[in-house]
Amino acid sequence: MTGAPELKAPKKAVSHSTLGRAQRWSWIFQRVSGVLLIGLIAVHLTVNLVMGDGINQIDFAFVAGKLANPFWQWFDFTMLVLAMIHGANGMRMIINDYAQTPWIAATLHWALRISTVVIVILGTLVLFTFDPCPAGSDPSLLPSFCEDI
């Protein structure tokens, strides 16, 4: 053993810094949100395109009717936020892969962040401030509950 290099004692257990690495959380998020998105997208497509009259049912009244219901508001909000963060996180990885020049990478990363925030805010505004019965419209185009107002 003489002359062998001095080695520091090996680490014993998982350390705090090991658990907290952002790369790992990003990886886990991609998988968890992916699984949730399968369910959300399946329900979304079934309700809109398969149940009832299928694709023929989609008009202003159908969309307005759904967005007047808090369940669908929160359902769509979850789908919007998860899909946007999932998609943006995926695009972030792709930028890291392909953009080698630092300023190009920084520009793309900021463009991605800004567009993600803008789309999430716009989408949320639409979901929660949507007026299903705009005044002065042809009643035949509006959802049935508008007559009561």
């Binding site: 998982v14 090991t18 690495r21």
Partner: peptide, 18 residues
């Protein structure tokens, strides 16, 4: 006994999560 030394290295930016 060096498993966590190696895992820590592989947990890094350019490690397994790529």
């Amino acid at each position: 006994e060096g498993e966590w030394d190696r895992l820590e290295i592989l947990n890094d930016k350019a490690g397994v999560w790529k």
